[in-house]
Design a protein around this nucleic acid. Structure first.
Lengths: 334, 334
DNA sequence: TCAACATCCGTGAACGTTCACGGGAGCGCT
DNA sequence: AGCGCTCCCGTGAACGTTCACGGATGTTGA
């Protein structure tokens, strides 16, 4: 696994440049870093020497002596999922304003990759932000005392802080909206795959119960458009009288939208659809997606903000500040 | 900009752990890295001490002595653009299989951010892959001898290597397809903003000329769905007899699709639309987008492959191998 | 009893850079 | 002459870790 196959690339150091230019290390350092206390001609000579030899400073040596660069790791289950992309983009932006570097890891939603990432990440970054599906014990074992901010998953121990997504009111509003439109048979497409049912499902169930309607109309769906289509077919096969669906996220909703069109059911007249996430993508489909939207921009920025506080030792935000609320955003699909 | 505001976080080193556990540095190193030549009880004692003190090894010191970690920088104009997301995702995947780390920079499509990234990137990564809009002179000045792979933009000097996107045959096929459908007034929505016209536009023009149709029906559009909509309106206002459009990319095409629907023109019967990129997103809209598709997965993988060759000194791929061809992929929009 | 060996642990050195300090040359001023 | 100052430049030290080597102790075998 060691990287040296072709021409044995010998690293050229500041020493070599110094010798080549006939000066000392320190003078080279001065020339390269634009410090003063150096004469113009000498500086130029050193710069020429550096270019001649193809010198590039070692980030390790530099980082060792000046402790000013911070790098954070961003762990994402699937960058192709627009929701995570939006979160990642906002996190990158927030990090950029602080002058931080962000190493991105895509775990491809596989537990094995997640573990592998955890093992390797500890010795590469100063702090971690992201989504994790493994247990907090495992998480802790691999990240020993590193500042960590979890997104979406509620933490149980004080070891971590996490950004909570509060969609309870938003989902309640969504169900209320559907009922106001006259719907009484409202189904849900939850995600499939995870062991335990989702929080969003729980919110949906309590909202349905609060309005006195049947809350048992739930089917599973993969987190993809195709999964949403298949889920809708299964749901309607089991419960043909369903006239409205709430979905785990917008990707599933968009798949359901497409499937409804293929089945010849017009949206929202013959089938109302409400998603969750509020992706920008929702505005591109027809009809525009109604969604319980959350501010992904704030989500990423909040995560970076908190990790920064943990990093500098400043007083961290506490749980009730680390919340992103979701609210119903009307489109045309419900 | 120095990061120490709250509790003066003093770094705990391997020395502190050694003293606390009553052993030497080397023994601590052995325990932490799972080497042998250490007794079980001693190892446990060291591990406990490390946890007690909250010790975490310095990645700089470690990287300085063992030269086995490579980090590459990935520079992307806009992560929210699905095309770049797909490229980034495939690059991340390719890097992961090699055990490399990827630092991602989103330049937000602004020249200032690009320059800022270039300045800071040189001392942080071993090689760079990505999109750049600045001149090769500037590029070279900030990245002095660092292996670089440019995507999309053709390089002129031997200093860089770049992945070329060859869409000539694909665009030709697209125009031929439209003409076979009976279209004679075919417009194009090129991107706006850049100084010089795009290669895709040149391909379109030659293809149109080859078929003997008017090639002057071009309007500009921002690289967004809204931009595509506005572009389509402008194009149709100037040339009301246009019955088909080829667009700079799929995002613009999807915006045009939406705008056509809003104007009451059915697609593809009253207006045919062909995009460029072949995004997965194209399958989600109605009708599914016909597009001159390129293999984004191969694009990212190829870039990482080449940067790896440059890094190890292995013989790099030459220009005619660094090409991704685009071909017409039928959807339902043309 | 002594050599030979295995097991465990510690000591200098090195990685490549920047920081703190010191020193020489040149100049002006008293 | 002597002092002080500015302008350049160089030398030890430090950052925190791992590598190469050597030493100490216990165990085995003849």
């Amino acid at each position: 696994m060691v990287s040296s196959s072709g021409a044995e690339i010998r690293k050229v150091t500041i020493h070599d440049v110094a010798r080549f230019a006939g000066v000392s290390r320190q003078t080279v350092s001065r020339a390269l870093n634009g410090k003063d206390e150096i004469e113009g001609s000498t500086k130029q000579r050193v710069l020429d020497a550096a270019r001649e030899l193809g010198y590039r400073p070692s980030r390790f040596a530099r980082g060792l002596v000046r402790q000013d660069t911070t790098t954070i790791g961003l762990v994402i289950p699937d960058l192709l999922n627009p929701f995570f992309t939006e979160v990642a983009a906002s996190a990158l932006e927030a990090a950029r304003t602080r002058g931080w570097h962000v190493v991105v890891y895509d775990t491809a939603d596989r537990a094995a990759e997640e573990l592998g990432t955890l093992q390797v990440i500890g010795s590469q970054v100063d702090a971690v932000v992201g989504y994790f599906s493994c247990s907090e014990d495992e998480l802790d074992r691999y990240t020993r005392g590193m500042p960590m901010v979890l997104i979406g998953s509620e933490h149980r121990t004080a070891r971590f802080s996490s950004i909570r997504i509060d969609g309870e009111a938003g989902v309640h509003a969504a169900v209320a909206h559907l009922i106001a439109q006259g719907h009484t048979r409202i189904g849900m497409l939850d995600h499939a795959g995870r062991a335990e049912p989702s929080l969003r499902r729980a919110w949906f169930l309590t909202a349905a119960a609060a309005h006195g309607i049947d809350a048992g109309l739930v089917a599973g769906a993969d987190q993809s458009a195709d999964g949403g289509g298949a889920g809708l077919r299964a749901l309607l096969a089991a419960h043909p009288d369903v006239t409205a669906v709430f979905t785990f996220n917008d990707i599933i909703a968009i798949g359901a939208l497409r499937e409804a069109r293929r089945m010849g059911r017009s949206v929202p007249r013959e089938l109302a659809v409400i998603g969750f996430d509020g992706l920008a993508l929702g505005a591109l489909v027809e009809p525009p997606l109604t969604s319980v939207a959350l501010d992904t921009h704030r989500l990423g920025a909040l995560a970076i903000d908190q990790v920064g506080r943990l990093l500098t030792g400043a007083d961290p935000l506490d749980a009730d500040e680390l919340v992103v609320h979701a609210e119903l955003r009307p489109g045309g699909s419900a």
